[in-house]
Simulated scan of single mutants.
Amino acid sequence: MYFSFNSSKMFFFIILIFSTLISISSNSWIGCWIGLEINLLSFIPLISNSNNLLSTEASLKYFLTQSIASINFLFSILLKMILMKNFEMIFFLSIMINSSMLMKMGSAPFHFWFPNIIEGLSWFNNFILMTWQKITPMIILSYYFNKNFILIIIMLNAIIGALGGLNQTSLRKLMAFSSINNLGWMLSSIMISENLWLFYLMLYSFMISIMCFLFHILNMFYINQLFINNMNSLIKINLLINFLSLGGLPPFIGFLPKWIIINFLIMNQMYFLTFILIMMSLIMLFFYIRIIYSSFMFNYLKMKWFKIFIKNNKFLLINFISFFSLTGMILSTFLYL
């Protein structure tokens, strides 16, 4: 598992970026569909690895689920073109198009494939799947919203993301359910404004990149590794800051976009939705704090001979990023001045 690419992987990575640009700049449904298909065919070579059975299985599962979503989307487009004047079918078609995009991004209740596939991927591929692969479906979804349907989906994402992560021992599955929970916030932000969604996505991508980078350097995949391995206290503090920032605790940068969304939802009198999102965020924070508490408090004498070291340049980068995570309250204070 490496962050570096060979030439063929780099080629597919460039195609992946261009496929997203094709979809979001297209002025027709067929153009969006073509971009999605190119995206699918470029991401599979990135995640498949002949030496790893888990990644091969994950690539096959990803192909099957994305193909089902693409067929559903194409069928919806064709129906829309045929039944253009039939207003009774518009509601049904909007739900079909929305559902296919939600399946594409791994949203609840179509999330059945998401944690299983993430479990078989490297941390870098997980980062792409949790951030970049959500851009195209989210933008296509914003073209054809069914507001009442999306409100139910937002609540489902928040609840399933929070409750699904409670009994997980795998860090990758934990990040998957965290991503599902954050998807609820993302859908709320895109209902308010595309600029707010872009701001949320950028900050979320920043926070997820820190976590994936840290776990990649420490070579960690399970929760028990956080307190079995003999880590430096500064590394544990960095993990604490970044976990709490991802959960959206007020002093950290992850609180800023959530605070803006809560303000807008309360202004639009969506009190029940706001209550669900806040309560589920508290559950997310509960299991983040539980993990950090364990890593700080548990002491394994058997592993004292094994010490984890991080190169100075990487450690300085992690410390700088963690310091940036602490500036959330300052930015929140000056936002409305």
Rank of each mutant, 00 (worst) to 15 (best):
Asn6Leu: 08
Ile15Met: 14
Leu16Gln: 01
Ile17Trp: 03
Thr20Gln: 07
Ile24Tyr: 08
Asn27Glu: 10
Gly31Tyr: 01
Cys32Ile: 14
Ile34Arg: 02
Gly35Ala: 14
Ile38Glu: 08
Leu41Val: 01
Leu41Arg: 01
Leu41Trp: 12
Ser42Phe: 04
Ser42Met: 04
Phe43Ala: 08
Ile44Pro: 03
Ser48Leu: 04
Asn49Thr: 01
Ser55Ile: 06
Ala58Leu: 06
Thr65Asp: 07
Ile71Gln: 08
Leu79Arg: 04
Leu83Phe: 15
Leu83Arg: 09
Glu88Met: 12
Ser94Ile: 03
Ile95Ala: 06
Met96Arg: 01
Ser99Pro: 02
Ser99Arg: 06
Ser100Met: 07
Leu102Gln: 00
Met105Trp: 06
Phe112Ile: 03
Trp113Tyr: 00
Phe114Gln: 03
Asn116Pro: 10
Gly120Trp: 07
Phe124Met: 12
Met130Lys: 08
Gln133His: 11
Ile139Ser: 01
Phe145Tyr: 12
Lys147Cys: 12
Ile150Pro: 00
Leu151Gly: 00
Ile153Thr: 00
Ile153Cys: 03
Ile154Cys: 07
Ala158Phe: 02
Ala162Leu: 01
Ala162Cys: 10
Leu166Thr: 05
Leu171Glu: 05
Arg172Met: 00
Arg172His: 04
Asn182Tyr: 04
Leu183Ile: 09
Leu187Glu: 04
Ser188Ile: 00
Ser188Asp: 04
Met191Ile: 11
Ile192Met: 13
Glu194Cys: 12
Asn195Met: 12
Trp197Glu: 04
Leu198Trp: 12
Phe199Met: 13
Leu201Pro: 05
Met202Tyr: 03
Leu203Cys: 04
Ser205Pro: 03
Met207Ser: 08
Ser209Leu: 15
Ile210Pro: 03
Met211Gln: 06
His216Glu: 14
Ile217Ala: 00
Asn219Gly: 04
Asn219Arg: 12
Asn224Cys: 11
Asn230Trp: 13
Ile235Ser: 04
Asn238Arg: 05
Leu239Asn: 02
Asn242Gly: 01
Asn242Ile: 13
Pro251Val: 14
Phe255Ala: 06
Phe255Asn: 02
Leu256Trp: 11
Pro257Gln: 07
Leu265Pro: 08
Met267Pro: 02
Gln269Asp: 14
Ile276Leu: 08
Leu277Met: 13
Leu277Glu: 02
Phe286Tyr: 15
Tyr288Lys: 05
Ile292Leu: 12
Tyr293Ser: 11
Ser295Asn: 09
Phe315Arg: 02
Asn319Asp: 03
Phe320Val: 09
Phe323Trp: 13
Phe324Asn: 08
Leu331Phe: 15
Leu331Trp: 15
Phe334Thr: 13
